[in-house]
Simulated assay, not measured.
Amino acid sequence: MTISHAVVGTGPAVLLVHAGVADARMWGRQVEELKADHRVITVDLRGYGETPLEAGAKYSDAGDLLELLDELGVDSVAAVGASFGGYVVQQAASRQPERFNRLVLICAPTDNVVPTDDLRAVWAEENQFLEAGDVDAATDLMVRSWIGPDADDEARELLRAMQKRAYEVQIAAGDDVDNEEYAVEPEKISAPVRLITGAHDFQFFADSATYLAERLPNVERIDLPWAGHLPTLERPSEALRLIL
C-alpha cells in the first residue's frame, strides 16, 4: 500500500511525519517556506487524513515510510517527526540508518520510557468518551491536552479538524488492526539528531528526550520554555527555524 503523500519543491529531500493527533495538514505553514529550496515530502499515516485504515489491516507505519521512500527514489533524507511521527521516524532510522542524514524529533516518545500518571489519565479519559460514543468530547479533550498556550485560534481549529478526522477513520476500522512497531535502537542512528521538547508538555516526553540524549551518538537537545506538545502549530515561524 502507498500511503497518501505530497511532494513539492526541489532540492535536498525532507520528510515531515505528523503527530498522532494530526495529519499532514499540521505542516502547512512550514511547507510553504521549505519548498523554496527543498524537496518536501509530507505523508498521512494509515488512519489519518487521506490514508484509509482497513478493518483487519496488518501493517507497519515505519515500513510504510521506507516503502514510500523507495517508491520516490529517495536514498538520503532529512526527517522531521512530531510526537508519534517522531517515534515512527526513530523506528525507520533504526531499521535503515544509512538512509537518514539528519533527524529532528519534536516532543517524541521512545521505547523503554514509562508513561507518566498525568498522561495515562488523559488516555483513560479519552477512552471513556470514545466508549460512550462522544467523539466531540474526546476531541475537545485532545485539543486542550496537546496544544500549548501560544497557539492561535486557527491552529486550535486545525487540530480539532485533524483529530476528528482521525477518530472518524480509526473508529470505522475497528480494533482488529495490527500495526507492527520496529525496535528503536538509538545507538544505530549515526545521523545528527536534534531533540526538541516543550516546558508545557507532559513530563513523559522530556523523559523520552533524556533517554534518547544519553544513547544517540550525535545529538543536540533544545528545551522550549514557551512550547506545549506541538510547537510547529504554536509558533510556526520559530519552530521552522529550529527545524532548519
Rank of each mutant, 00 (worst) to 15 (best):
L69S: 11
I243R: 02
D70Q: 08
L195V: 03
A124I: 02
L240R: 15
G28M: 06
E50F: 10
G11S: 06
K35Q: 11
F100D: 03
F84E: 12
I171E: 05
V40Q: 07
E125N: 01
G148H: 05
T210C: 05
F204P: 00
A161C: 00
D118H: 11
V7R: 07
L65A: 01
E67N: 06
A6K: 14
E98K: 12
G85Y: 07
A151P: 03
S60M: 07
I196S: 03
Q30W: 15
P149V: 15
F202A: 12
E157F: 04
A206G: 00
H200N: 13
S4E: 08
D223K: 10
G198K: 11
G133H: 11
N112V: 08
V31I: 14
L224I: 05
V135Q: 14
G174C: 10
K35F: 04
D64C: 13
R221F: 03
D153K: 13
A183P: 00
L66M: 13
A166S: 11
E98S: 09
L69K: 11
V184Q: 03
G81L: 10
D118P: 00
P97Y: 05
A132Q: 13
P186D: 14
E234W: 07
A82N: 15
P109C: 14
M26E: 15
D23A: 01
R215V: 03
V184E: 00
R39H: 09
Q90V: 03
A151R: 04
L230I: 12
T10Y: 00
I189A: 14
Y182V: 02
T116H: 09
L233W: 09
D223R: 13
D223S: 15
I106F: 14
L65W: 06
D207Q: 12
E131D: 10
E50G: 08
R194K: 12
C107K: 03
D37N: 12
V7I: 09
Y211S: 02
D44V: 02
A239N: 09
V77L: 01
V40K: 06
D178F: 00
T10E: 15
Q91Y: 01
V177T: 15
A55F: 07
D207F: 00
L240A: 08
V89G: 06
Y167L: 04
P231A: 00
R102C: 07
D223C: 11
G73C: 14
E238W: 00
V219L: 08
A55H: 03
P225K: 14
Q163N: 06
V193N: 09
L212T: 09
R221W: 04
D207A: 11
A155Q: 10
G11E: 12
S190G: 04
D118V: 08
E238V: 15
L224H: 11
R194W: 10
T42L: 12
P225H: 02
V8W: 04
S76A: 14
F204G: 07
Q96G: 03
M1V: 06
L65P: 01
N112P: 01
R102Q: 13
L233M: 13
E238K: 11
L212R: 04
T210M: 07
S76M: 10
V21I: 12
G56R: 10
D136A: 00
D140L: 13
N218P: 06
V17I: 11
E98W: 14
L68W: 05
A191E: 02
L159S: 12
Q90M: 07
K188I: 04
L16T: 07
A138D: 07
E67Y: 10
R156A: 04
E187F: 00
A161W: 04
L158K: 09
E98A: 13
R160H: 03
W123D: 01
